[in-house]
């Protein structure tokens, strides 16, 4: 039997919002470590990986590892029935074909129980290599969202050039060109507003804005986003979920032939 409880439904609602435009179906793997999910989008250009650790839950019980195959659209719809402040319990029997979602209002006066049909999914899993990156940029997540949105008005791709002390995001299109330069913060009072740029070697790579705009749906989960970049490998766009885990997106670069 699997059962877990979170004090606020809000975080799981935001997590579903961050996933449902990119993937249609996915498997939540449940183990003693927590909940995790890994899936590529239908065109295999990007991959999303979510980890929600046991320690972040109020209660977490998992007698046996199980895989919960879900339709993301359905799960997101049901999650929307919870108020942000409701506490939420997820429950499933070991060999069951249902996932129960129980929402309880903070004053305990209203309890809603939904049951979602699970799917038998066979989803290809990729091994994510544990590697060092040439550059890591941390910046306010809202700023990154804005840059991706604004550059989409110009072109389909963004070229990211990282040098010591700053990053250039540039796009080219039929109507013209754009370049946004973000400089590393020299002095920041609030950590959430900081831009930090770690460079082991300068990099210059091109990525599809369409996918980056999908990734920025995770913005409400975290004040900061980190971008890890190395030559000729997928970009990692990571959002930490405070005290609970993370949502990480991987995006294959565009490569010049």
């Amino acid at each position: 039997m699997f059962e877990c409880r979170l004090p606020k439904a809000e975080v799981l609602k935001k997590t579903m919002d961050a996933l449902k435009d990119l993937i249609k179906e996915a498997v939540w793997d449940v183990s003693a470590q927590g909940l995790s999910l890994q899936s590529m989008d239908s065109s295999h250009v990007s991959l999303v990986q979510v980890t929600l650790r046991t320690e972040g839950f109020d209660t977490f019980r998992c007698d046996k590892n199980i895989a919960l195959g879900v339709n993301m659209d359905t799960m997101q719809k049901l999650m929307k029935c919870a108020s942000n402040d409701d506490n939420i319990t997820l429950k499933s029997e070991d060999n069951g074909d249902l996932l129960s979602l129980i929402f309880e209002s903070p004053n305990g006066e209203k309890t809603s129980e939904y049951e979602m049909k699970l799917m038998d999914l066979d989803i290809e899993q990729l091994g994510i290599p544990d590697q060092e990156y040439s550059c890591t940029i941390k910046m306010p997540s809202g700023e990154f969202q804005r840059i991706c949105r604004d550059l989409s008005n110009i072109g389909e791709s963004v070229n990211i050039t990282v040098v010591k002390g700053g990053v250039d995001f540039s796009a080219k299109g039929d109507i013209g060109n754009a370049k946004i330069h973000v400089t590393e913060s020299s002095n920041v009072d609030n950590e959430k507003d900081a831009v930090t740029v770690e460079v082991n070697e300068p990099v210059n790579l091109t990525f599809a804005l369409r996918y980056l705009n999908f990734f920025t749906k995770a913005t409400p989960l975290s004040g900061q986003v980190s971008l890890s970049i190395s030559p000729d490998v997928p970009l990692v766009v990571a959002y930490e979920i405070e005290d609970l885990g993370h949502v990480k997106y991987f995006l294959a670069p565009k490569i010049e032939n």
Partner: peptide
Amino acid sequence: KINQGRMDDFFKIS
């Protein structure tokens, strides 16, 4: 010409 890479080209099936 610029080609879009695919995740399968970078990460192996586990």
